[in-house]
C-alpha cells in the first residue's frame, strides 16, 4: 500500500486519506460565463504528469495539497494549503468592487509561477 506523507501526521498508509480532486481555483460566479462555470463544475483536467491535488487525512480531517506525478504515481511534496491560499477570498458581484481581493486570490491559484514559488518556499 502506498505511503503518503501528511504534513501534519507524517508517513501514513494511503488508506487513511481521501482524495479531494485537482487543486483548481474556485471562480467567482459573478465573473465567469455559464460555460466557464460548467467546465469548473464538471470537467476534470486529468493531466498526465505533475499535478496539484487535494488530499484529506481522515482521522484528523486535515486537508493538504500534494504534488503528484499521475504517470509515475509518485508524490513529490505535500504541504499545508496556506502555502497557496494565503488570503481571505470573497465572491462579490462586480459593482461591489472588492473585486481586487477576489482576483488576486484567484490569480494566485491560476498562476503556476506563483504556485511554484510558494512550494519552493514551503520546501525550504
Amino acid at each position: 500500500m502506498k505511503i503518503i506523507n501528511c504534513p501534519l501526521n507524517g508517513q501514513r498508509n494511503a488508506q487513511e486519506f481521501v482524495y479531494g480532486g485537482e487543486v483548481e481555483p474556485h471562480p467567482n460566479p459573478h465573473l465567469v460565463s455559464d460555460d466557464e462555470w460548467a467546465s469548473y463544475v464538471f470537467i476534470e483536467k486529468n493531466l498526465s504528469g505533475k499535478v496539484l491535488e487535494w488530499w484529506c487525512h481522515v482521522p484528523t480531517a486535515y486537508w493538504f495539497i500534494a504534488e503528484r506525478d499521475t504517470k509515475l504515481d509518485e508524490i513529490f511534496k505535500t504541504y499545508d494549503p496556506s502555502k497557496i491560499f494565503k488570503e481571505r477570498i470573497d465572491f462579490l458581484p462586480p459593482e461591489d468592487s472588492s473585486k481586487k481581493t477576489t482576483e488576486s486570490a484567484v490569480n494566485n491559484m491560476h498562476n503556476t509561477d506563483s504556485i511554484k514559488k510558494n512550494t519552493t518556499e514551503g520546501n525550504s
Partner: peptide
C-alpha cells in the same frame, strides 16, 4: 501521539 485508525475508528 498518533492520530490514526484503530480497528477502523478514528483515534
Amino acid at each position: 501521539i498518533a492520530q490514526t485508525n484503530i480497528a477502523r475508528l478514528n483515534c
